[in-house]
Amino acid sequence: MAEQSRNGDRPEKLSFWQRLMDNHFLLLFLGVVIPTVFYILWGIMEIANLPIAE
């Protein structure tokens, strides 16, 4: 809010996407967690759960 008033514009709530993209550490968290879960963990679990050959 301080930001807007300093620039003399009408205070307006920034939209969700803009706040998300300005939150660099949240982006870092998402960018690390998503591939870790979907690529690494899911993949490793599938390999670990393979049946053993007769």
């Binding site: 998402l30 960018g31 591939p35 690529y39 993949g43 599938e46």
Partner: peptide, 28 residues
């Protein structure tokens, strides 16, 4: 927004190298 899509999804494509490997399902 295009960069955001990179952050969220680009890294999944490491799977390109594993497509003919045994042990990973088609869904993965």
């Amino acid at each position: 927004f295009a960069f955001l899509l990179y952050i969220l999804f680009l890294q999944l494509a490491a799977a390109h190298h594993i497509l003919t490997d045994p042990g990973l399902s088609s869904e993965w």
